[in-house]
């Protein structure tokens, strides 16, 4: 099993509903977020191109955060989801520094926090909060090993990219362009 998410950058309007849904679902402390919107504008006026992306942890296949964790608090569970065990985390910050996507943050309670692909929901057959709430339905979540899953189907039809693949992380967030 290999969970992954696909983001349709052509459908995303950057409304930030995914961000708020995540903060609500996961009780994120005020002033922090596990997912966020990035808007990139490229080119020379008047020839401009814009891309809007809903970003979060890439749940990398080769995760630097898991490698550098001195206690094993950062670990990979079934389906390739990267998680942090709270009472194993010492808050040293190594994983935060190791993430090229800056997807982790120090929770005010001391441990390090990040996107979990809403593991609790996914385990029970639901989709992650951000996916469930997206008003333009630009987020797709599912199992890449299953050829009939949402993600597999949509990635077969469209062109896509991943973010800084040259960092060697093998990210599992696909942006359809």
């Amino acid at each position: 099993m290999r969970y992954a998410m696909a983001v349709d950058t052509r459908k995303c309007v950057g409304c930030s509903d995914c961000v708020v849904a995540c903060q609500t679902e996961n009780e994120i402390p005020i002033g922090f977020c596990r997912d966020w919107i990035v808007e990139v504008t490229d080119g020379t006026y008047p020839q401009l191109e814009m891309e809007i992306r809903s970003e979060r942890c890439n749940h990398c296949k080769n995760a630097p955060c898991v490698r550098c964790c001195p206690t094993g608090a950062s670990h990979v569970v079934d389906g390739g989801i990267v998680l942090v065990t709270r009472n194993k985390c010492i808050g040293c910050g190594a994983c935060i520094a190791s993430c090229p996507y800056d997807a982790r943050y120090p929770h005010p309670a001391g441990y390090v926090d990040k996107c979990t692909f809403c593991e609790n929901r996914v385990k029970n057959g639901m989709s992650p909060a951000c996916v469930a709430v997206c008003p333009t339905r630009c987020l797709y979540f599912g199992d890449l090993d299953d050829p009939n899953s949402n993600v597999s189907v949509v990635l077969k039809k469209r062109k896509y990219k991943t973010l800084i693949p040259e960092a060697g992380t093998q990210p599992q967030l696909y942006f359809m362009i």
């Binding site: 950057g14 930030s16 961000v19 002033g31 922090f32 977020c33 966020w36 919107i37 990035v38 808007e39 990139v40 504008t41 490229d42 970003e55 935060i96 800056d102 982790r104 943050y105 120090p106």
Partner: peptide, 12 residues
């Protein structure tokens, strides 16, 4: 290229 991010995590 202009990049605008909605993320503003403290210390990151």
């Amino acid at each position: 290229e202009l990049i605008v991010s909605g993320r503003m995590n403290h210390m990151v």
